[in-house]
Design a protein around this nucleic acid. Structure first.
Lengths: 193, 193
DNA sequence: ATTAAAACTAAGCGATAGCTTAGAAATAAT
DNA sequence: ATTATTTCTAAGCTATCGCTTAGTTTTAAT
């Protein structure tokens, strides 16, 4: 996103944040590869020249869309970090995550979907961004789990790994959008089988 | 796959099962959309005319590749169905599943990857095939769980749903191919947290 | 040997992908 | 009002997509 404030001969007739929000929803619905620049034109309401002038490439639009998505989910993460109830915080985080998608009627988690789409790709930028996100989330889980001092280090690591991967199952449940299934899945994830 | 045995003027210089096996590996590595017909040509070792003559379309090659994949995994499913140890069978099935990908050095589960790629798609054939597979697998899980007569119906359904979705986490773990993480995940999935 | 049918090669089809550019329209500074 | 700079429209660029077809080669049947 170019933000050089020079002498403006003509003002942009769109707001970059607004059009990125629209792009985000399109990518969320279709994924990266199944979203074309022509589709972005229509959804964002600006033409290709403007897209490339503002964001450089389709890839650039996607990167900004991911930023926007994560900005919108920041409150959930802040809540997760701020609370001090150990495992219960993680469970609440799972519930908060699916609540967001239920409210918006958008299916699944854009980050998990993107992780799945890019984990084997050669697009190192997106791939690494997704991996970094997963590593950071795992670290939060580890800290939460360590609050229970009865758990040894090995158990904490295993449980953090388990909970991180459970996110993929949750995203799958969220895509088919059966609220009961999602709740059941979260309960089962945190209870003994 | 056309199998009309008429008067053969010239024999095919390739075996359809052989070339489908090669196609399967390519789809497995790249997914459906990221595999082009030109890539299939090179991998299968036959040219586009032959591909279309034998399988009708890229879609047709993919359908046959999925069949081949499931045929190769049939032994695991037969073992799962034949055994009578309830929950332990499901756990063994998870271990068998990752063992297969470890041995082959191919990452993740083609079916789960395909499910993820097609669950929101308009390709009803593949989508329904994946959903049918998941439904069938869930049914097997339900039957296994019912062997433990101390569980009530509701618990069985929740646990089956949980285990089915756990497959997505397992596939994600299998893609990054860290054997220890996969084992830990399976253990955690079947143990209390 | 001739013929007919199937398999093959290689070129090319229209559609669409991501991206660029020429030129018109708009606007801040002079 | 003129000029300089930026935005915008619309057309078009090359590459690749899935797929087809014209024409050659091979082979079984006569």
């Amino acid at each position: 996103m170019r933000c050089i404030t020079e002498i403006m001969a003509r003002k942009k007739q769109y707001n970059e944040e607004d059009v990125i929000e629209k792009a985000m929803y399109l990518f969320w619905r279709n994924g990266y590869e199944n979203t074309s620049v022509r589709m972005l034109e229509k959804e964002m309401g600006i033409n290709q020249f403007s897209i490339y002038a503002s964001f450089g490439s389709k890839h650039g639009v996607f990167v900004e869309s991911l930023k926007e998505y994560r900005k919108r989910n920041a409150s959930i993460f802040n809540k997760l970090r701020a609370s001090k109830n150990g495992l219960a915080d993680i469970k609440q985080f799972f519930y908060d995550s699916i609540q967001k998608t239920n409210d918006l009627d958008y299916k699944g988690c854009l980050v998990t979907n993107t992780y799945n789409e890019f984990v084997d790709s050669e697009d190192e930028e997106i791939k690494n961004q997704m991996i970094d996100f997963m590593v950071a989330l795992k670290q939060i889980f580890i800290e939460k789990l360590k609050m229970d001092t009865t758990k040894d280090e090995e158990t904490v690591l295993k449980q953090a790994n388990y909970l991180l991967l459970a996110k993929h199952g949750l995203a799958a449940a969220a895509r088919v959008n059966n609220e009961q299934e999602m709740n059941d899945y979260i309960e089962m994830t945190f209870n003994n089988i």
